[in-house]
Measured scan of single mutants.
Amino acid sequence: MEVRTIKVFTTVDNINLHTQVVDMSMTYGQQFGPTYLDGADVTKIKPHNSHEGKTFYVLPNDDTLRVEAFEYYHTTDPSFLGRYMSALNHTKKWKYPQVNGLTSIKWADNNCYLATALLTLQQIELKFNPPALQDAYYRARAGEAANFCALILAYCNKTVGELGDVRETMSYLFQHANLDSCKRVLNVVCKTCGQQQTTLKGVEAVMYMGTLSYEQFKKGVQIPCTCGKQATKYLVQQESPFVMMSAPPAQYELKHGTFTCASEYTGNYQCGHYKHITSKETLYCIDGALLTKSSEYKGPITDVFYKENSYTTTIK
């Protein structure tokens, strides 16, 4: 009895394709271990004539594949690729409408935090270190965002349907971005203890939790000093293409032309909904596939993004 075979390709990165001759009487799992086709788990399936010449994702289970996976995804987590594939199996079914010149995501599976993050990423200057993220990001900007969303979920250790947080998501993504040249110098002034300067680099240099107003941050924000008295913390120097200011959701007025974009969060910790506000020729609110415009805006804002380049204080 002759062994019926077909020729397929296996890959971990969709760049390096490895030619395989597979036995049609055995499952993919018996031949390769966990195997995925377009995100779908085909591990328990036997090869079919229609699979001839198709590319299958496999887990990096030998040295060659491990090197290829690390170079593309910059992670050695053995569960990463499987999590990416199972997320992709959902995100490829989502709709990605162009809204006001940006790629958004039609609401499904509690994905409003991903839509808000995706919209924000198209408006701030950011370059990702893992080629996987950078490639998928370019495709997302062009309207094909399924891979990018699935990668975000995998890097953030999230599953489809789980509630997510924009600030946490951005923080994970910033860790995989090139923020080497970003720098922030802060000064804390206390009447009792004097003053202390701190220099922050990388992710810490672009994120701040405690106030939404970048102007206020430049002037000074009140913080408790270690001595128990009130101290003032203010920005001395900022070198970065953008800054992200966050605070627990509270009524906040966004003035046209003073910011790049913002995240609105309605609801409580267990259950809520994100919308995205962007400042173009007027203010726009993007909620999944829905767009509304207004000249002014007041609502429960939790993150505001500002364009920056270089700032030095005039406070002496």
Rank of each mutant, 00 (worst) to 15 (best):
D41I: 11
C227G: 01
C156I: 06
F259P: 01
Y274V: 00
L118Y: 00
T169L: 08
S86T: 12
Y234S: 05
Y96N: 04
T76Q: 15
P78G: 12
G164M: 02
I301H: 07
L179W: 05
Y73M: 05
I277H: 05
H276M: 12
Y84T: 02
I152L: 11
N268Q: 15
A115L: 01
K183C: 08
Q197L: 08
G272F: 02
V188W: 03
S104C: 14
S79I: 06
L163F: 15
Q175S: 10
Y138A: 14
F217N: 02
T282L: 09
Q30C: 10
N49S: 11
C156P: 01
G288A: 02
D287W: 02
A250L: 07
K92T: 07
I301Q: 00
V206L: 02
F128P: 05
A132D: 02
S279Y: 00
V236W: 05
V221N: 00
S240D: 02
N129V: 08
C225W: 00
Y214T: 00
N129T: 10
Q134E: 10
C285K: 10
K44I: 15
H176M: 10
K307D: 07
H51R: 05
F148M: 13
A289G: 11
V99S: 10
A117W: 01
E168Y: 06
T120S: 13
A69P: 02
A40S: 13
F148Y: 04
Y72T: 07
V12S: 06
V304G: 02
I15A: 06
G29S: 09
E264G: 12
V189W: 07
H276S: 09
V185D: 02
L179M: 11
V22A: 13
C190F: 01
N178P: 03
S181E: 14
N157G: 08
D77M: 03
M207I: 06
E162I: 02
L200F: 11
V304N: 00
L290D: 13
C227D: 00
S171H: 15
Q230H: 06
C112R: 00
D13P: 15
S279G: 09
I286D: 00
M170W: 02
E2P: 11
S246H: 04
E253T: 10
L212K: 06
A289K: 07
I6G: 07
S310Q: 14
P60N: 02
T199H: 10
Y172R: 10
L179R: 01
I6Q: 13
Y311H: 07
G82R: 12
G53Y: 11
D287K: 00
S294V: 15
K95N: 09
T211Q: 03
V12T: 08
K92Y: 11
H18N: 09
M24E: 08
C190A: 06
K229F: 08
D38M: 11
K127C: 09
E281S: 05
G220T: 04
C193G: 01
T226P: 13
D77W: 03
F32S: 05
T313F: 15
T226S: 15
A289W: 07
V42N: 07
C225S: 02
S171L: 11
Y73L: 04
N110F: 07
L153P: 05
L88N: 06
T76D: 13
Q237L: 13
Y28N: 07
E168F: 07
R184C: 00
T169F: 01
V8C: 11
K127S: 11
Q196I: 10
T282Y: 11
R141M: 12
P241G: 02
E68Y: 06
T278H: 09
G39H: 11
Q251M: 15
S263W: 03
V8T: 06
D77E: 09
T159I: 09
Q30E: 12
T35R: 13
V189R: 09
Q196P: 02
K275C: 07
D180E: 11
E52R: 10
Q30S: 13
K219D: 07
S240C: 01
D38Y: 09
T55S: 12
P78T: 10
L179K: 11
G82Q: 15
Y234A: 07
T43Q: 13
G267A: 15
T314S: 15
V236I: 07
Q123C: 07
P131M: 06
V58L: 08
M85F: 08
F56N: 04
T19E: 14
Y138H: 13
N110C: 01
Y269A: 15
C271E: 10
R139A: 14
E71W: 04
T27M: 13
H276L: 08
K280G: 13
F80E: 08
T10H: 04
G53L: 11
C285N: 04
K280A: 14
K183N: 01
F128T: 02
G39A: 14
Y265D: 07
F128V: 03
C193L: 04
K95R: 08
K158E: 05
K7H: 13
D165T: 09
K44V: 14
G39W: 06
E144F: 07
V203W: 12
T76A: 15
T282R: 09
V185E: 11
L37P: 04
Y274Q: 00
K293Q: 15
H256Q: 14
P300H: 12
C225T: 00
F148L: 13
A150T: 01
Y137Q: 04
C156M: 10
Q134Y: 05
Y57L: 09
I315C: 15
K93H: 14
P248F: 09
S246P: 01
T278K: 01
N157S: 06
D287P: 10
E162P: 01
Q222C: 09
G202I: 01
I301F: 01
N61P: 09
R66G: 08
A69W: 05
H273C: 02
H90A: 12
A145H: 01
P241R: 06
R167G: 05
D109A: 06
M24F: 10
C149P: 02
T260C: 11
A150Y: 05
T169A: 05
E296D: 12
E296N: 14
Y84I: 02
A142C: 12
T116I: 08
C285V: 14
I45D: 13
E308V: 08
W94N: 04
K46F: 10
V3Y: 11
L133H: 03
V236C: 09
E125N: 10
Q195F: 08
E308C: 08
E2K: 10
I286R: 00
K201G: 08
N110Q: 01
M170P: 04
Q122Y: 04
E239W: 04
F80P: 03
Q195L: 13
Y73T: 06
G33P: 09
Q122G: 03
C149I: 10
N157L: 02
W107K: 01
Y274D: 04
D13R: 10
A154H: 03
A136S: 08
T211H: 08
L235F: 00
P60W: 11
T75C: 15
P249S: 05
M85V: 06
L65M: 14
V8M: 12
D62P: 07
Q216A: 12
P130Y: 01
C149M: 12
M245I: 02
L17S: 12
E71C: 09
L88T: 05
A69Q: 10
E168P: 07
Q175D: 07
T313G: 09
N61H: 07
H176C: 06
K219F: 04
T198V: 13
D77F: 08
N100M: 12
A262C: 03
Q195D: 13
K233I: 15
S171F: 15
A250D: 08
A142W: 08
V8F: 02
K233P: 00
L114C: 01
L114A: 04
A247F: 04
V221K: 02
L88S: 01
Y274L: 05
T169G: 04
H51W: 02
E162K: 05
F217S: 03
T35A: 14
D38H: 10
Q222H: 02
A117V: 15
G220V: 03
L290W: 11
M207T: 11
S86F: 05
A142T: 14
Y172Q: 13
G228P: 02
N89P: 07
Y57S: 06
V67R: 14
K7E: 11
F174G: 04
L37T: 09
